[in-house]
Computed example of a mutant assay.
Amino acid sequence: MTSPRVFFYVQHLLGIGHLARASRIASALTTAGFDVTVVTGGSEVPGFPAQGIKSVVLPAVLAATAGFSGLADIHGKPVNDEFLTRRRDLLLDAFHRVRPDIVITEAFPFGRRQMRFELLPLLDAIKAMVPRPILVSSIRDILQERTKPGRDEETVSLVKAHFDHVLVHGDRSFVALPETFPLAGEIEGKIIYTGLVAGPLPKEPGEVFDVVVSAGGGAVGIDLIRAALALAQRSDPRRSWCLITGPNLSETDFAELALNASDHVRLFRFRKDFPSLLKSAELSISQAGYNTVCDILQAGCRSVLVPFTAGGETEQNLRAMRLASLGLAVAIPEVGLSADILRGAVEAALAECPPRSGRLDLNGARRTGDILGELFEARRIQQASS
């Protein structure tokens, strides 16, 4: 029997969290025997998707603002209709070339409304294909709150009309989908929880740092890095600091930070061994993005979380507050962040024992492969008997 073909669409607009999670899932699917093609449409990030996975790279679009208002090209210029039409056609050409058995849309239709210009035509193409591929939506455990009337109803309508299942990459005992998507009950029969998508257990690091500071993709983490750098400069020089700015931090900001770093503070744009660094660190200081938190939990590292809340973002704050309530992290607000405030949080975190592993289900990548394998086999048996 040939390997099931998976067509996995992922669009990152600001940070790299969506791409990183999708890459972990794609790697697990490949290991499980699926033939995976990942379609990406954001800025290039080295290492994502992982080496050996087939990929289709669409002309990049980014969020024009931190509030996800509008689309821009890689140079920050607003995109026009001609650009978007070309992207749509390239996406549809790739879909017809792969002729997948399973299509995964990361975030959509629960997010990525900006991409409807190409995703609604993709849904139509899926519906018209014979045999029709299994279509699933792949979403994180905590969704951004929607304030505009009708948005949740629109999502439910699309799920009912087109999607076979919704894979929620979370532990239901931690956060259940109805907490951030009030209409979840209307599609309850389609929802499957996979567990959190963490990476594998980290290896021993090649370098050891006492404190690891990270800012996700780097597009919105400059204040966190500046506060951490100011604190590091005042700290005991025997304590080593690793500051990872993220690949999307501007060259100007990175150069300014590098000028102010001292001997016990190392500055990096990106570290492939980030999970391993956490394994040996005393403390992690970071935002509260999905993948970063999964890495922290997998490593069993103490942590200070500074959730990103600009532009009305609510997802990271809920995650950070929930982890703090379970004693798995110390959480402080992004607004008004300073070195002094951060110092208090660091002292509080270091006074605690490292969090115990096993509190939450972190096996979501492998479980996603199991689920899709079961769905594909059920569809194959159904088609053979019809």
Rank of each mutant, 00 (worst) to 15 (best):
A219D: 06
R226F: 01
I222C: 09
A227C: 14
F209K: 04
V220F: 13
D236N: 15
G217W: 01
S240W: 09
L229T: 03
D236T: 11
T245Y: 02
V213M: 01
P205V: 04
G246P: 05
V213F: 01
V220K: 08
R239Y: 10
G221R: 11
D253Y: 02
G217M: 00
G206I: 12
V212Q: 04
V211S: 05
D223V: 08
G216L: 03
E207C: 11
P205A: 01
A232S: 10
S235N: 09
G246C: 05
P205C: 04
A219P: 06
A232M: 12
D210E: 05
S250Y: 09
R239S: 12
T252C: 07
D223Y: 07
P247G: 08
C242F: 03
F254Y: 15
F254Q: 13
R234H: 11
R226E: 05
C242K: 02
I244H: 05
G246L: 00
C242H: 03
A215R: 05
A227F: 15
L231P: 04
S240A: 14
P237R: 13
F209Y: 15
L231C: 07
R234S: 14
E207I: 03
A215L: 02
I225Q: 00
I225W: 02
S240Q: 15
V211K: 09
R226M: 03
T245W: 01
E207Y: 06
G216K: 12
G216Q: 08
P247E: 09
T245V: 06
Q233N: 15
A230P: 04
E251C: 11
C242M: 09
E251L: 14
V212F: 03
V212T: 03
D223C: 06
E207M: 11
A219I: 00
R226D: 03
C242S: 11
T245N: 10
A215Q: 02
